[in-house]
């Protein structure tokens, strides 16, 4: 039996729109429609889609915050909205854009409050806290009120908060949004360790394809509330025909570069944009370009998730 099982999961919202001065028209918005999900223990799954696609609504149903309007849903064997409190012990949730910590309290107090709330045994709490403080480098921040933490620091605090009670499943809603490159890297490393060593099942929604690339073998794409893809990341790139871009700054202006496996898409003075398949390695391409031209600088742009999905959607 899967850890997360959904069949035909749906959620509609009734929205009243103003039409005229006093009249309101009632419309049904399908935030999630007829969604099937099956996730096994220990998986790391990326749940992606454009803004308003229904990602958060799905997570809120999986955690029991929202009551589904249709379909069948079991998480860890229970119906989340009916057994919200029982489920709470087994899941951890991180909402990227808002904190689950208490704004005015120092991190340490927030963690202690959570220990009480989840009834984490003292020794377990101490070991867990020590481990996460070490791994996430929170030692100097424990006595700082949450309001004074930077976004990255707060995210690390939030992740610790979500894990103190040893959940089996960790939901992460946009965990790397607004973080700098170094923080993102550290966070991904931590999540990998968490999955490998503790076997925590991860479901993360993100805009950042690099998060997925670094962490998830499996990707689920949702758009307009419906699942449009469920499979391996490489398969997504193949199906979506996604390309990466090698940005080359030449020493001098030159005609469009022609090398094997890439096409020049744009030329602007000494700078050129070459696109190549997302699942191909960049190394041979870089070598080929460097061998044939005088290169001042190189950088790689990752495929834009919105483009991939648009492509995917237009084909299906």
């Amino acid at each position: 039996m899967g850890l997360i099982e959904a069949r035909g999961l749906s959620r509609t919202f009734t929205v009243y729109k103003r039409s005229g001065r006093l009249n309101r028209t009632r419309t049904e918005v399908r935030a999630v429609h007829d969604l099937d999900l099956a996730i096994e223990p220990g998986e790391m799954v990326g749940y992606i889609g454009p803004n308003g696609a229904g990602k958060s609504t799905t997570i809120k149903m999986l955690t029991g915050i929202l009551v589904p309007t249709g379909g069948h849903l079991r998480v860890a064997g229970v119906d989340p909205s009916r057994k919200r409190r029982a489920l709470a012990h087994r899941i951890g949730v991180v909402f990227g854009q808002r904190t689950t910590l208490w704004w005015d309290l120092p991190l340490r107090d927030s963690f202690e409050l959570l220990q009480k709330i989840y009834r984490v045994p003292s020794d377990r709490f101490r070991t867990n806290l020590a481990e996460f403080v070490e791994l996430l480098d929170l030692g100097d921040l424990l006595d700082t009120p949450v309001r004074q933490l930077s976004l990255g620091q707060r995210m690390r605090g939030d992740i610790t908060a979500a894990l103190l009670h040893d959940p089996e499943i960790l939901y992460l809603d946009e965990p790397t949004i607004g973080l700098d490159v170094i923080s993102k890297g550290r966070l991904r490393e931590f999540l990998r360790t968490l999955n490998a060593e503790r076997g925590v099942t991860l479901l993360l929604t993100t805009h950042d394809l690099q998060d997925i690339e670094a962490l998830c073998r499996r990707v689920i794409v949702i758009d307009h509330g419906t699942k449009v893809f469920d499979g391996a990341l490489t398969e997504l790139h193949r199906q979506g025909g996604s390309t990466r871009t090698l940005v080359v700054d030449l020493v001098d202006e030159a005609p469009p570069i022609s090398v094997e496996g890439a096409t020049a898409r744009r030329v602007e003075g000494p700078r050129q944009w070459l696109s190549f398949p997302a699942d191909a390695s960049a190394a041979p391409l870089v070598a080929a370009v460097a061998a044939a031209y005088d290169v001042a600088d190189l950088s790689i742009q990752e495929p834009d998730i919105e483009d991939v999905i648009r492509e995917l959607y237009s084909r299906s």
């Binding site: 409190r85 709470a88 909402f95």
Partner: peptide, 13 residues
């Protein structure tokens, strides 16, 4: 502020 969401995923009524 979304604080209710965070309370809802905790095991206290």
């Amino acid at each position: 502020l979304g604080r209710l969401d965070t309370m809802m995923v905790r095991p206290v009524p």
